[in-house]
C-alpha cells in the first residue's frame, strides 16, 4: 500500500494549517456532523449571499484526512455559486468512490486531487467526505430558509 500516495504533502500541509478553521460570525446555518464509527466531528458554518457561498468556517476534531479534506473543501466552495460547489462535490465523490481508477480533474478539484490516494484506503473515504457532508447539509438548510423567507416576502 502506498503511504506516500495517501499522505501527499498537500494533505499534510492542510492538516497542519487548515484553511478557514475557527468558527466565524455572521453565518446562516451551523451544523455538527460526526462519523459515528470513528468519532471524527466537525462543526461547520455557512453563510450564503443569494446563490453564492459567501463564507464557510469550521471547527473539527479528526484525523489528517478529514481535517485536510474540510480545509480543501472550504477553499473550493467559498466565493462560488452553490451549484458549482455541489458539482465539485460530485466530482470529488466520484474520485473517492473510484477505487483509484478515476483520473482526477485538477481544473475542478485543485488541491482536492491530492486525495486521489485515499480512494485506495476504503476505511478512510468517509474521513475525506465528512466536511463535504456537513457543508452540503448546512447549505441545503440555508437555501431552504432563504426560500421560506422569500415565500414570506411574496406572501406579504
Amino acid at each position: 500500500m502506498q503511504l506516500d500516495s495517501l499522505y501527499q504533502e498537500i494533505i499534510l500541509d492542510h492538516y497542519r494549517t487548515p484553511h478557514h478553521a475557527g468558527l466565524a460570525d455572521p453565518y446562516d446555518v451551523e451544523v455538527h456532523h460526526v462519523n459515528p464509527s470513528c468519532g471524527d466531528e466537525v462543526t461547520l458554518r455557512v453563510e450564503l449571499d443569494g446563490d453564492t457561498v459567501k463564507g464557510v468556517t469550521h471547527d473539527s476534531v479528526g484525523c489528517s484526512i478529514s481535517q485536510a479534506a474540510t480545509s480543501v473543501m472550504s477553499d473550493l466552495v467559498i466565493g462560488k455559486p452553490v451549484s458549482e460547489g455541489m458539482a465539485t462535490y460530485e466530482k470529488f465523490l466520484e474520485l473517492m468512490q473510484g477505487r483509484g481508477n478515476v483520473e482526477p480533474d485538477e481544473e475542478v478539484l485543485e488541491d482536492g486531487v491530492a486525495f486521489a490516494g485515499v480512494a485506495q484506503f476504503p476505511a478512510r473515504v468517509k474521513c475525506a467526505l465528512l466536511g463535504w457532508s456537513a457543508w452540503r447539509d448546512a447549505t441545503a438548510q440555508a437555501l431552504a430558509t432563504q426560500g421560506a423567507a422569500n415565500e414570506g416576502v411574496k406572501n406579504a
Partner: peptide, 28 residues
C-alpha cells in the same frame, strides 16, 4: 498524530490495531 493516521500507517506494515472511540466515547 491522530489515531486514524496511526492505524493507517501501521496497517501498511501489516499491523492491525483499532482507532476511534472503541464504542466507549464517554470514557474518552
Amino acid at each position: 498524530v491522530h489515531p486514524h493516521d496511526v492505524s493507517t500507517v501501521l496497517d501498511t506494515r501489516g499491523i492491525a490495531v483499532r482507532a476511534g472511540h472503541h464504542c466507549a466515547r464517554p470514557v474518552h
